[in-house]
Simulated scan of single mutants.
Amino acid sequence: MSSISFFEKGEGQPIVLIHGFCEIGEMWADFADALSNQFRVICPDLPGCGNSPLSLSQNSLEEVAVQLEEWMEENSIHDPIVIGHSLGGYVTLALLELMGDKLQAVGLFHSTAFADDEEKKEMRDRTVIFLKKHGVDKFVTSFVPPLFPEERREELDSEINLAIEQAKRCTLDGLITYTKAMRDRKDRFEVLKNFSGSKLMIAGMLDGAVKIDASRKHKEAVTDYFELENTGHVGMIERKEESLKIVREFCVRVVSR
């Protein structure tokens, strides 16, 4: 029996929304509410986050993908549209490589199919050192605000504080494990490019974590590409209505194909 915790709303075509690093499934609550009048929306906590325990053997995105495939089978989630934010996008691509055409469509939300470059890998190593020294609370308090554009942080103060509180529900072992897994993940650009289903990418023009130049290199590999102006790394919060409209229309087109 899977130990993955999740919530779901609605009926119909299943949409699985996978949260990112320092996030939990609850981050998708507004999206689930809005989409549930047309779809079955399922939002899991990745192992080591929220209410999902981390497996002792888990140390790669491939192992997370295997766990999610088993979880989907147990919960009759068949032919889903899977959309992942940031780390959730990396997990989505690992799932795509594992499951292929068993997925109806995929979406990357402020994410990338490319592997980390050496500079990013060094940053991941520094993150592991910081986490081991200072713990979860101090890390997420410093990590979350810079995901948002500096000029909008005062305006989005309550949303940022909520994101920080949700991030504190990730375990130390989980954050360290995912930092290493992101550092060591392989390039899956060809996996994305060769998938025959519909493929969505949403990028933030001010995203400091996934640079817009890197996102634009995915245009040839996806069927639907969108850029959010004046948006950092968390478009589903920064530009909620615009992001929701893009996701809804993408999912409607997939279902009506």
Results as ranks from 00 to 15, higher is better:
Gly204Trp: 13
Ala163Asn: 11
Arg40Leu: 13
Gln104Ala: 12
Leu95Tyr: 01
Leu35Pro: 02
Ser57Ala: 11
Leu96Ala: 04
Tyr178Leu: 03
Asp173Pro: 00
Ile202Gly: 01
Glu70Met: 06
Ile77Trp: 03
Asp33Ser: 01
Pro149Trp: 02
Thr127Asn: 11
Ala115Phe: 03
Tyr225Lys: 02
Val91Gln: 01
Ile83His: 01
Glu97Leu: 00
His233Arg: 03
Glu70His: 03
Glu11Phe: 09
Glu154Pro: 03
Met72Trp: 10
Leu172Ser: 03
Ser52Gln: 06
Ala115Arg: 04
Asn51Lys: 11
Pro47Asp: 13
Val128Asp: 04
Ala34Pro: 03
Ala214Pro: 08
Cys43Gly: 07
Gly135Val: 08
Val66Gly: 01
Val191Gln: 05
Lys193Pro: 11
Ala105Ser: 08
Ile83Leu: 11
Val66Met: 06
Ala221Pro: 13
Thr223Val: 07
Ala34Leu: 06
Leu103Gln: 00
Leu93His: 02
Phe143Glu: 12
Ala113Thr: 02
Arg126Met: 15
Glu23Asp: 15
His134Phe: 11
Phe109Met: 13
Leu87Asp: 09
Cys170Ser: 12
Ser60Glu: 04
Ile237Ser: 01
Ser76Ile: 14
Ile164Asp: 15
Gly204Pro: 13
Asp213Gly: 06
Leu35Val: 11
Ala163Gln: 15
Lys199Ser: 12
Leu35Glu: 12
Glu238Ser: 01
Pro53Asp: 10
Met99Arg: 00
Leu93Tyr: 03
Asn51Phe: 13
Thr231Val: 14
Val252Leu: 15
Leu200Trp: 02
Phe148Ile: 15
Leu108Pro: 08
Cys251Leu: 01
Glu63Ser: 02
Pro44Ala: 02
Gly84Asp: 10
Ser60His: 01
Gly100Trp: 09
Ala94Glu: 14
Ile15Pro: 02
Ala221Ile: 09
Arg239Phe: 08
Ser158Pro: 10
Lys219Thr: 09
Ser36Phe: 08
Pro44Gln: 05
Asn75Ala: 08
Glu122Gly: 01
Ile77Met: 05
Phe31Glu: 15
Ser111Gly: 06
Val234Phe: 05
Pro80Tyr: 12
Ile83Cys: 08
Asn59Cys: 07
Asn161Lys: 12
Thr92His: 02
Lys138Gln: 14
Val144Ala: 06
Thr231Tyr: 05
Gln58Gly: 12
Gly88Ala: 07
Glu63Asn: 03
Val210Thr: 15
Pro44Glu: 05
Asp116Phe: 05
Leu46Gln: 02
Val210Tyr: 10
Ile83Glu: 06
Lys120Asn: 09
Leu56Trp: 01
Lys240His: 15
Ile212Lys: 05
Leu147Asp: 06
Asn194Trp: 09
Tyr90Ser: 12
Val234Glu: 14
Val252Ala: 09
Arg40Tyr: 07
Pro146Glu: 12
Ile42Ala: 00
Gly10Val: 13
Val247Tyr: 00
His110Cys: 05
His110Tyr: 05
Ser198Pro: 04
Ala29Met: 14
Asn161Gln: 15
Phe31His: 10
Arg153Met: 12
Glu63Ile: 01
Gly12Phe: 11
Arg153Gly: 14
Glu150Arg: 02
Cys43Arg: 00
Phe195Ser: 02
Asn75Lys: 13
